[in-house]
Amino acid sequence: MHPAYSVILFTTASGAGYGLLVWLGFGRLLRLLPLTATFTCAAFGLALALITAGLCSSLAHLGRPERAWRALSQWRSSWLSREGVMALATYVPAGLLALSSLWFDGVGPLTEALALLTVAAALLTLFTTGMIYASLRTIRQWHQPLTVPVLIALGLASGAVLNNLVLALLTGTPRWAAWAAIVSLAAAGILKWAYWRTIDGELRSHTVEAATGLGRFGKVRPLEPPHTEPNYIMREMGYRVARKHVTTLRQLVGVLAVAVPLALSLLSLLPALALMAAALAAASMAVGVVIERWLFFAEAEHVVMLYYGADVA
């Protein structure tokens, strides 16, 4: 699949934003967070800004962004619609939670409820985003049980890294935030590794023979394409990345999105290094996740390419 930068940016930024919201919600619920206006503005502001930036970027993917509101209507069947609904809905508890933190200086049942709702909405949003991909039967590398967990885990991990950074910046080293980052990064790393193992090990079951129904005569090969220059389908679904690049890029993801932020998060436990380590972790994570998202598209093979020269998918 063609890695669309608008979508990559969206899933990276919004993913981190929703992840951060999850941690902020937990933090509030478990009363782990400072109640200062500075912190609230910075942390919630960052989360909502990331989400908003991501959503805006996703509009750029649309041919008719001015009609984007229509996407909210088909939540009964469409994961994309559900994502849209959830993405917007999340603003409500998250916004109220932020406001409640500004207005009340304690955590009461209302704040607890808002925090719970924020966590749920953010997780659900990540889930719906994941399901958009995971539900596509046409793309084997996406139609995987691990697609959603990976997406959620990466969202949580990047959120946790950011959470750690904000806290480090404003309050020193809260050990829980560092540990949240460490654990979620490890989880994301393991899940992604498992995901890769799965897609590499899986049998490719769709063949050009089934796509054309011509297997009865033997091996099927394209003779003439319908057009000599690539069309939309080939531009959108025909993106291929060389095997050797995949290996390098996967290693890069492992290093930049998992190993480095994990190590730095550990380092951030040392108060002296907390801020710098958390900041570097966030930077590394951002680059790593962008590469991961890019790979997520680039590695994905659409079954339609069977009509355009692919043997199996």
Partner: peptide
């Protein structure tokens, strides 16, 4: 769109 394929050897 109209493709052409070859099948068999």
């Amino acid at each position: 769109r109209v493709h052409a394929f070859e099948a068999g050897e």
